[in-house]
Design a protein around this nucleic acid. Structure first.
Lengths: 282, 282
DNA sequence: TTTAATTATGAAATAAAATTTCATTTTTTC
DNA sequence: GAAAAAATGAAATTTTATTTCATAATTAAA
């Protein structure tokens, strides 16, 4: 774990003086990696041995070792932070920021996912009689993408981005059907209703949404995808990308579960496209 | 610059003894960050002052500072590499691999993008009478997503994932129209044709594709998105995500170019969705 | 409350690590 | 092959970190 997060986590396990040290470090970690133990002690208004004890409480060998960990955390932590686009950014700058925020979101999303739930979802999907993907707005394209992927697996799969079709489909679902409902906010009324309708009709409902949303409450399995959207620009950005990555994970899990013969089949599907393409010369 | 690269670069500028130090470090940098100057000197069979001089030649303040730099380089280098999914991976493992490969691809894609081309594209888009997005297969969802985004800007925007509609639309295009053609391989015959049709009819054609593909040759502006697809699984994965990130970049560029009054408008579009959602309680 | 036990803290001493100084060796230049 | 320049390491010095131990603060028990 990142040592900065660890400090933040263990803040209440620390003694009064040690907490002072922690606060100084959290306030300006980049300064600390260039400070001696004496300088840091002075900064925090405590003694040098206290700093040393603080370092050991965080499972480092001592102050120099602690600084090493800190340096590594900083190196890791800085590149992919959610940096907000600014009015006066050049193309170079906003491009970098958007790509970096996207990467940061993927990192966050991965942490929020639970491999157990993924396993259960893959289980359910491989057993399914029929798979439906529902989404609206930006999540509609994720549902669309999912259909593209699962279609290759030669299983009955549909996707709807229309409220009425979703409702009808949900009402007609039965035991053995899997309904995947995708919504970042998890608060879109019609989608939450569709989820509960599908569940009432014995379908297994998998929700791809943020933790603790109304949608999550209606689902048999919740795949939590937490990202921090930059709401300044009023457009869904990172959320749909994290959701797509999760679709990749599910699709991959599916093919792995089905074994290697099945993957030869996928190759055939792909090869069937060849005649529609210009040949590569390399 | 990464200090390990720097050492490798400056290897021939170093004296004989200093080179010995460099070699020991390059051979096992992760050991070195836990060694004292004495230990490293012994390892390299030279004296401690030589190590110290070596550190300063690399523009660090001394040995401890050098170790800090080294630690940061190590932390940066490893995280996001393209790791391939393996037959026997657990859910945890393949999830991590897919997310990490996706992040690595985004990193790669960003490097392949040219901010000048982005600027020109944003220019053209803000001036456009009509914007069309064309894609097939996995790229269709990118086109779909782009429509969702640009639709909010209150400009005439269409998207087609149907070959015939794309052709008809391309033939009807005229000066001032912008056609964005999306294809990772850039080898899909019908799309390449559509691009050249649109161009013949005086539309500005922007290609979102890999460097040097047949599609790229037909475009007025090429936005190169190079990623390394893991073709083992026969499904497009990273490419479409990188393309989506690029759509975000273009959309962001568009809103920035249009100024702050325009962004208030976006807020209204978003607010209009409120009544369809469950309220947040926090 | 008061007292005993525990825990936290810092001053001083010690130990470890890094740096500087300077004499010696090696290499280069003429 | 001698003089100058550069490289190197032994030893001394300085800086930095750690340990020890006495004292202070906090908590638990009476």
């Amino acid at each position: 774990m990142n040592i900065l997060e660890k400090i933040a986590n263990e803040l209440d396990m620390l003694s009064k003086s040690e907490r002072k040290v922690a606060e100084v470090i959290l306030a300006s970690p980049s300064t600390v990696i260039h400070s001696s133990i004496a300088a840091l002690a002075k900064q925090a208004n405590i003694s040098e041995p206290t700093v040393n004890r603080f370092c050991r409480r965080l499972d480092t060998k001592g102050y120099p070792d602690f600084k090493l960990h800190l340096a590594q955390s900083l190196a890791n932590g800085t590149p992919y932070v959610n940096r907000h686009v600014d009015e006066n950014d050049t193309a170079d700058e906003y491009t970098a920021k958007i790509f970096e925020s996207t990467m940061a979101s993927l990192e966050l999303a991965r942490k929020s996912l639970n491999s157990n739930d993924i396993n259960r979802s893959v289980d359910v999907l491989t057993q399914a009689n029929k798979i439906s993907f529902f989404g609206l707005g930006a999540s509609a394209i994720v549902a669309h993408d999912a259909q593209n992927k699962f279609f290759r697996f030669n299983v009955p799969v549909v996707y709807f981005d229309d409220i009425l079709m979703q409702r009808m489909s949900a009402i007609n679902s039965r035991q053995g059907d899997v309904v995947i409902v995708i919504s970042h906010t998890g608060r879109t009324k019609s989608l939450v209703e569709v989820a509960s309708l599908a569940k009432e009709n014995d379908a297994t409902v998998i929700g791809i949404t943020s933790t603790g949303t109304p949608l999550a409450k209606e689902c048999s399995i919740v795949l939590s995808v937490d990202v921090s959207e930059d709401t300044d620009l009023y457009m869904p950005m990172s959320s749909r990308i994290a959701q797509l990555a999760l679709i990749d994970v599910l699709a991959t899990g599916f093919t792995l579960r089905r074994g290697s013969k099945f993957r030869d089949n996928l190759k055939k599907v792909k090869d069937s496209l060849r005649s529609s393409r210009f040949e590569r010369k390399d």
